[in-house]
């Protein structure tokens, strides 16, 4: 699946997803031979396999749903190199709030990746909320969509990219 990181097409994705079949929720207890390289796991998998994931040779990322209470995750932020936020449909904007809270309130420095319904016309808003990686469906990707980040160059209110409203810029 095409991936944009820091406003450029990324050719390589170092992350392996262990999320498995979404409908089955993935295997909760991971086997030792799965634990290699950078691993993206669900919140449940992270909870159940913490010591093993922390000691394996690679980084750990967690994907959360958009109704997930961030409070539960805060203490783990320094152990996670990636947080994937779910945008289930084009009309759903809950993860915009999660992204801003992670970046601005909790100071998360790792990669925040938008997954799900991620297309051209929401990239700029996602970027402004602190998301820096975007997984795009094959049939919706084009190199032109990178223009999304430059379409509007004026921001009246602060957000994760620049917390200053226009009257403090």
């Amino acid at each position: 699946m095409p991936l944009i990181i820091n406003q450029q097409r990324a050719e390589l994705d170092s992350w392996t997803s262990l999320l498995g079949d979404e409908s089955a929720g993935g295997e909760e207890v991971l086997s030792v031979d799965q634990l290699s390289g950078d691993l993206l796991v669900s919140w449940e998998q992270w909870q159940k396999n913490r010591p093993a994931l922390l000691s394996h040779d690679g980084r750990v990322g967690v994907k959360i749903d958009n109704d997930f209470e961030l409070g539960d995750l805060i203490e783990d932020l320094d152990k996670l190199s990636l947080i994937a936020l779910e945008f289930p449909v084009f009309s759903d904007g809950r993860a915009f709030s999660q992204a801003r809270l992670l970046r601005q309130r909790y100071g998360y420095q790792g990669e925040i990746r938008a997954v799900g319904d991620v297309t051209w016309d929401r990239l700029r808003f996602m970027h402004r909320c602190g998301i820096n990686a975007y997984e795009i469906a094959e049939d919706r990707y084009s190199d032109e969509m990178l223009e999304a980040f430059q379409e509007i160059t004026v921001q009246l209110q602060g957000a994760a990219d620049d917390p200053r409203p226009i009257y403090r810029q």
Binding site: F96, R122, F125, I166
Partner: peptide, 11 residues
């Protein structure tokens, strides 16, 4: 001004 193209609150 605050609300215009607010990145968090447009969806």
């Amino acid at each position: 001004q605050w609300a215009t193209l607010h990145p968090e609150f447009t969806y």
